[in-house]
Amino acid sequence: MDDQDQQLVFINWLEDHSASVMKVARAYTLNSEDCQDLAQEILLQAWRSVPKFSGKSTAATWFYRVALNTAMNWKRKDKPRRESQQPLIDINVPEPHGPDSSERLLHQEMIENLYQAIHQLPKTDAALVLLYLDELSYQEMAEVLGVTENSIGVKLNRAKKKLATILNGGCDES
């Protein structure tokens, strides 16, 4: 795969998955600087991985492998290292205005609560919850984590229970 092909594959992929990059980054960091830093790191690692992507697994599986491996290994960079990197991505979240602004505010609050709950989960459970929220199948989750499909159900149920406990103060998922 030459550089142009690699760039094309990557850009096509990023158009579909750029929001997932930010979600994984946000789930594994506590502030905006770290979030940006981790998102950039995921992009760099994903770019480097493109030539190795053979298409045996789905693009979502491949992306989550790269993103979660990077997130779990990620260490907060020192300030000078961070400052030397140019921001590669720009995120724009529209402010809640207009007639449905109260609904949007409620929606944002829900998302914020969800991230806060994910932060409280162990890293492996957080990974499973992210895969669940992005509607990956059990088979894809098993491929991302490198475990059997049978064990995913048990592990995911446990993670969901913990998440529900944090979110709803003990209420289980229906």
Binding site: L30, C35, Q36, Q85, E112
Partner: peptide, 10 residues
């Protein structure tokens, strides 16, 4: 945790 999605200076 509320200090979240904001761009960083470089």
């Amino acid at each position: 945790p509320e200090d979240r999605i904001k761009t960083t200076s470089s």
